[in-house]
Design a protein around this nucleic acid. Structure first.
Lengths: 68, 68
DNA sequence: TCATAAAGTAAAAAACATTTTACATTTGAA
DNA sequence: TTCAAATGTAAAATGTTTTTTACTTTATGA
């Protein structure tokens, strides 16, 4: 799964730590997510969608491998 | 978190079991999700979005309690 | 350059999603 | 009304996300 978190975070001029506070997770969760190390929960996606004012489908996109 | 899975599934005339096969999870996962027993992963949300051709933000919506 | 903020990394533990098996309840059509 | 399909439920096991602590590396401004 790809994501555009880093781009959107930069657009708002937020650090990973800033964003972590806003969506109420740890800074490492934001870091790992940006690096594609795992797929977050839908609740977290919706919170990011809310903060960025961008649809979830524009924040996260399925890749080939995600369907196996 | 609220969801409109049941409505969208009915729209396509699929059973929980049918949908489970399409998004590659167990029937119980679909059932529990429809009943709001837990929040699925973003990958699963995106797969449902794809099958239903409906944005994730229209399938799942945050509620008051989700921000604490 | 040097100090500091920001980002990246790691490992263990906690919390939560998902599977599996199995059974109970509801619904709808014959 | 009856049978089967669909849905709901539960508990244990497994896999994955998230937290926490702590350290390393990179970028940036004074």
């Amino acid at each position: 799964m790809k994501n555009t978190i880093k781009i959107n975070r930069a657009r708002l001029g937020l650090t990973q730590a800033d964003l972590a506070v806003k969506v109420q997770v740890s800074r490492q969760t934001i870091n790992a997510m940006e690096l594609g190390k795992y797929a977050p929960s839908t609740i977290l996606s919706l919170k990011l969608s809310d903060i960025f004012d961008v649809p979830v489908n524009e924040l996260f996109m399925l890749e080939e491998g995600d369907w196996q």
